Amino acid sequence: MSEAVLPEELRNKVREIIADVLEADADELTEESSFVGDFDADSLLVIEMYSRFERDLGIKVPQEDAPELDSLPATYAHLAKYAPEAAGV
Rank of each mutant, 00 (worst) to 15 (best):
R11L: 02
R11Q: 15
R11M: 10
K13P: 00
K13I: 00
V14M: 11
V14I: 13
R15V: 10
R15Y: 06
R15W: 09
E16G: 03
E16H: 08
I17L: 14
I17A: 12
I17G: 08
I18C: 06
A19G: 10
A19I: 11
D20C: 06
D20A: 14
D20V: 07
V21E: 05
V21P: 00
V21Q: 01
L22M: 08
L22H: 10
E23R: 11
A24Y: 01
A24S: 13
D25A: 07
D25T: 05
D25R: 12
D25C: 04
A26R: 13
A26F: 02
A26M: 09
A26P: 15
A26E: 15
D27Y: 09
E28M: 15
E28C: 10
E28Y: 11
E28L: 14
L29N: 04
L29D: 07
T30F: 07
E31K: 10
E31V: 13
E31N: 08
E32W: 07
E32N: 11
E32P: 04
S33Q: 02
S33I: 02
S34R: 10
F35V: 08
V36R: 12
V36K: 09
G37F: 03
G37W: 06
G37D: 13
D38Y: 03
D38P: 11
D38S: 02
F39M: 04
F39H: 06
F39P: 02
D40H: 03
D40I: 01
D40S: 10
D42T: 04
S43L: 05
L44P: 00
L44I: 14
L44M: 15
L45A: 12
L45Y: 03
V46Q: 03
I47L: 15
I47K: 06
E48I: 11
E48S: 15
M49P: 09
M49H: 01
M49N: 05
Y50I: 02
Y50E: 03
Y50Q: 07
Y50M: 14
S51K: 09
R52N: 08
R52M: 04
F53D: 00
F53N: 01
E54W: 00
R55G: 03
R55A: 12
R55C: 00
R55D: 12
L57V: 10
G58I: 00
G58E: 00
G58Y: 00
V61Q: 08
P62V: 01
P62S: 01
Q63Y: 12
Q63I: 14
E64G: 04
D65E: 15
P67I: 09
E68A: 08
E68H: 10
E68G: 14
E68R: 14
L69W: 02
L69Y: 04
L69N: 04
D70Q: 14
D70V: 13
S71C: 01
S71R: 00
L72P: 01
L72F: 02
L72S: 07
L72N: 02
P73S: 05
P73R: 03
P73F: 05
P73K: 03
A74D: 11
T75G: 06
T75A: 14
Y76L: 13
Y76A: 11
H78A: 14
H78N: 15
L79I: 13
A80M: 09
A80F: 03
K81C: 00
K81E: 05
Y82E: 09
Y82I: 02
A83H: 06
A83P: 03
P84Q: 12
P84G: 09
P84W: 09
